[in-house]
């Protein structure tokens, strides 16, 4: 069997059925813009503060664009039993889940490109290290998507997927060093920060946009890769244990 056909079919179906739907596109566009506007007004600075805001807006766009959408769509399909159809197809579970998550990863990356495109018009982005930025965006999108998959496997109801997503996302957002440096957090909270994947993604974004990363680049990339592998592995285990009873 040509395995490319089912994998592409799953990705194309998800893009059409979920990610390219007007409500999701508008959510993907509006949410990061609102966040950017809020921090822009809060900072009280001029256009020169845009590069400072960019890492946070990119991270928020990816995180919110991927986790809840993936966890909700997978939970929805599981609840409606259409996910069974995928489990019964002659496709290895690893490949199936990669195809299932690919749409959310692409959606997350697309969400990150929008604030960058706007920033390119209003600020000087010549100092950006594009290679690091691209790798950071892809890795954050993959880690956030796999977090969404982990959430989907852990819950049974769609509303639980939303609630559980926020349980992870909001603390992560404020503890990862995007908006407040980890050094200003109370000592007892810092280990929590370093246990979050977005901390390493945020550090990469800071380094790529402003050159202000604090951790060595190999450590950031390495830890993010480990998080991706762990979240994906645990999710696969969850699918095997909970959905193939």
């Amino acid at each position: 069997m040509r395995s490319g056909i089912p994998l592409w079919a799953i990705l194309a179906k998800d893009l059409r059925a979920y990610y390219l739907k007007p409500p999701n596109i508008s959510w993907g566009l509006l949410f990061p813009l609102l966040w950017a506007g809020m921090f822009f007004i809060r900072s009280g600075s001029g256009m020169e503060s845009i590069p400072e805001l960019l890492p946070g807006v990119i991270a928020v766009s990816i995180l919110f664009g991927t986790t809840s959408l993936l966890s909700v769509t997978v939970t929805f399909e599981k609840k409606g039993r259409s996910f069974e159809r995928l489990l019964l197809a002659p496709i290895r579970l690893e490949l199936l889940m990669l195809a299932k998550t690919a749409g959310a990863i692409l959606f997350g990356i697309a969400n990150a490109l929008l604030p960058m495109a706007i920033a390119a018009f209003v600020a000087d982005l010549s100092g950006i290290r594009w290679g690091i930025l691209a790798a950071a965006i892809v890795l954050i999108a993959v880690a956030s998507t796999f977090l969404g998959l982990f959430i989907a496997v852990s819950v049974s109801e769609v509303f639980e997927a939303q609630t559980f997503s926020n349980f992870f996302r909001f603390p992560m957002l404020f503890l990862c060093g995007l908006f407040f440096p980890i050094s200003v957090l109370p000592l007892w909270l810092r280990p929590v920060s370093y246990a979050l994947p977005l901390t390493y993604g945020a550090d990469l974004l800071h380094e790529a946009v402003q050159g202000t990363g604090v951790l060595p680049l190999p450590l950031d990339f390495g830890v993010l890769l480990v998080f991706c592998a762990l979240l994906f592995g645990i999710s696969l285990l969850g699918v095997r244990r909970r959905w193939i009873t």
Binding site: I5, W8, S82, R85
Partner: peptide
């Protein structure tokens, strides 16, 4: 266990694609 958001034709084509 088909997809309510797809048409009848779309559902059958998708299921066919799952089998290569």
């Amino acid at each position: 266990n088909l997809y309510p958001e797809l048409t009848g034709f779309g559902n059958l084509c998708f299921c066919g694609a799952l089998y290569g």
